[in-house]
Nucleic acid binder design. Structure first.
Lengths: 343, 343
DNA sequence: GTTAGCACTCCGTGTTATCGAGTGCTAATT
DNA sequence: AATTAGCACTCGATAACACGGAGTGCTAAC
């Protein structure tokens, strides 16, 4: 168990280091008003804290730097709550005050605000709305050989895809099929669509349409194939302002990792709901080993919709970021709920 | 006017430098099989070429490096045509062979291919389809106080936006208005919509609906407000592999510039159609002063749809990039045309 | 338990020397 | 007159070295 004094010193070191990015020496600490011990005492305590694994040296005669374990302890026990500046709060409110009305735009703007206010890189996943229900299916012919398929959910989410109509298919058959699907599938949750079709609609389709299989397969491909959840990244360049990323190879590796949406999306999705802090090597992705990722999830009613996250060096301003994510995820959830109160 | 020998030397220097990124010395040139002059002769010629502004030295006793004027001359007069490798061609064909059928996806994939095959950063603008005609307007109520508006064009382009219905508006009025608009506006080019409404539809609406202004204003905001053309960027990290971008500040400035879509989009849009090369300081944007930007446009039928571009250091493989852009923009145009033959 | 004092360590910086690639110029060669 | 060999010179890159400063660990004194 750490003593009061050790806690104080650890906190001071981490707070200082987060802002200065320089190893902290014993003299600098003992000079502070809130610390009334001599540098020698501090030195002894620092040696102990190092032995316990909370601090590290960059070389044998350097000041101390927090270890990952140190950050972990700080985040779990030491961090003092951060109050956002009046300005920042205004900025957030202003954004949600706009008559945006569009998931995409809210998410996009949120990403921008996050990266602007923190100077880190923001990543937002979503919104994904599994339990969303089908509102309308539509196939709109554009000319003799192409059409656009549109799917609308009860949350106002729209998916669409253009496709060519194979010559062997009869447009009127397609129309008939879509009509039946549309009628039978209203209100069915998206993730149950395929199942519902197979169990209830297929027999009906067989009865009312010729060449059922071909037509249906085609519509299936056009409408029901999964689209990957979108990832919104903002403030990529912020990371380059951090002194720990002066080295271009590091930056390249990190950027490459971020561009691999197939890997980042599941990572964000797998985080606990609520605010979540992943420090350094706790992170699975190699290139993020000296980054921290802080996530929070936003919801629609009770249902989880997506994740907002900030990516920065392990020397991150955890307390600011955590409270900012808290505020923003709350605002997003509140906004979405307001739009779909009776959802 | 340059002599044959000067042309040869200039070409050799630029070709070499494009691949090595190292200043080229007289000895290295004279050793080549296709050059049969001594290093002293080459030195003399190089001094002349420098005086003429085609070459530069990095310091007083260094080898030569092409100047921007040198690159310009190379691009305009010296560049030998490049044949893409069988592999590269296959890759392109494979992509266009897929049953993609979606502007967005084609554009996205094209951006990826461009950056993959060149190791530069690709930027694609579009597609913007001004002369596109309205196919269908629709407003779909989601619940008592929100709805989604969908606009489809004859090219299969879909725009949509969710919005809340103000209490003072009558949903049935909205429906009536949309019905009228839909009926009267089919086939009207998007960019003429507002004009057409004012000149022909307004009177009709006034007759058939109450509270016309408010309802119409609302629909106008929901459906007809301009959405900025999308920008697709791929291979951002490629630029960091270039030795001229080892310096992180340069990279940051360049990245920041690329993120400013409001500035990049007009830049791409303003280029001449066909392939276009902008070298170094010819570029308007400060952060791109030591980059080159090569653009080409793609079309739907006769109509310009958008621009594909590659961004790299001034020491770019111009001949490869130019022919690649040529091939790809052609393929895109061909594909789009095939989809909408009777457009 | 705390602190003053001191020897020691290591980074960062500036200096100097050296090496090599490349140039410009002059004089010799073709 | 054009080309080339030869040579002195320039500059960047690299390595070796000394030195000052910030910081530590340890011992002994308070």
């Amino acid at each position: 168990m750490l003593t009061e004094r050790q806690l104080l010193i650890l906190q001071v070191i981490i707070d200082d280091f987060i802002h200065s990015a320089q190893p902290i020496g014993s003299r600098a600490i003992s000079k502070r008003n809130d610390v009334k011990y001599s540098s020698a005492t501090i030195r002894n305590e620092m040696a102990d804290l190092e032995e316990l694994g909370f601090l590290e040296k960059t070389h044998s005669s350097s000041g101390r730097v927090p270890s990952e374990q140190g950050y972990r302890f700080y985040v779990d026990h030491l961090m003092s709550p951060f109050s956002l500046s009046r300005q920042d709060i205004k900025r957030i409110q202003a954004m949600f005050g706009e008559q945006l009305m569009e998931f995409e735009r809210v998410v996009n703007k949120s990403a921008q605000i996050l990266s602007d206010l923190t100077n880190y890189t923001s990543i937002i996943l979503g919104p994904e709305v599994f339990e969303t229900e089908l509102k309308q299916l539509q196939i709109l012919p554009l000319n003799t050989h192409s059409a656009v398929a549109i799917l609308v959910t009860n949350t106002g989410h729209v998916e669409h895809r253009s496709f060519t109509i194979p010559v062997e298919l009869d447009p009127s058959e397609i129309e008939k099929t879509v009509n039946i699907l549309n009628e039978k599938l209203q209100g069915v949750p998206i993730y149950k669509l395929n199942q519902k079709i197979e169990s209830e609609v297929v027999t009906l389709l067989k009865k009312h349409t010729n060449n059922f299989r071909k037509t249906y397969d085609y519509i299936q491909a056009a409408l029901f194939s999964e689209q990957p959840t979108k990832l919104y990244v903002s403030g990529r360049t912020n990371i380059m302002n951090q002194p720990e990323f002066k080295n271009i190879d590091k930056v390249r590796d990190l950027f490459s990792a971020i561009e691999k949406e197939r890997e980042i999306a599941p990572l964000l999705r797998s985080q606990d709901h609520g605010v979540n802090v992943v420090i350094g090597h706790e992170n699975e992705i190699e290139a993020m080993k000296d980054c921290s990722l802080i996530t929070a999830s936003y919801t629609l009613g009770e249902e989880h919709m997506g994740t907002i996250a900030l990516l920065g060096p392990t020397r991150m301003d955890y307390s600011k970021v955590v409270s900012l994510l808290n505020v923003l995820s709350g605002q997003m959830s509140k906004t979405f709920r307001a739009w779909y109160q009776n959802y």
